[in-house]
Amino acid sequence: MTDAHRKILVLFAHPALQKSRVNRALIRGLDVMDGVTFHDLYERYPRLEIDVRHEQELLLQHDIVVLQHPFYWYSTPAILKEYQDLVLEHGWAYGREGRALRGKILLNALTAGGSEEVYCAQGRNRYTVRRLLAPIEQTASLCGMRYLAPFVVHGTHALDAAEIELHRRDYHRLLEALRDDRVDLDAAARATHVNADIDAIVRTHTH
């Protein structure tokens, strides 16, 4: 590993991991992946008592922040909201003096029960996942962060183990590419999902 690598912080939030199928698969191996810090929020703060200074320290030490979570009520599980409310302090993350997060990259990696078809203007859920994530995208913008399209695993209820494994490979490939600076960031920022056409966004070699 060289210094050219970017450091990734995965903020993972699943309140009932013992019941998870998809996320449990997605995180397998993340704790040993080079350049990645896997941070299990619910395990660290089961009662949502977030250590703000520690979290800010962690954010400062990383270049890329991934919010990984199941999609709950078109949003994140509660702890990620609490995290934003407490950690992104005025004068630190935003405001005239708040520059701590400038230039860092932020994206969601989420799993949703609904299929891709229901998440569009014509579908039952009326909005795309990316649009539903607008509050987070705007938060990133206020903090001067670059927001990328989310990594989404759709239709979790119907997935079998083999399909889940394919998603895991995509996810890990994306994280490694982000770490090694092999992602076309402009394309990733424009897309609706980073993993809709992952080959177009991830280059095989450094340029």
Binding site: P15, A16, K19, P70, G113, T156, H157, A158
Partner: peptide
Amino acid sequence: GPVDDSAWDAESLRREF
């Protein structure tokens, strides 16, 4: 998982699906 946390349980969702 605790019973009163069955809201977090996607099992019945999956069955219905």
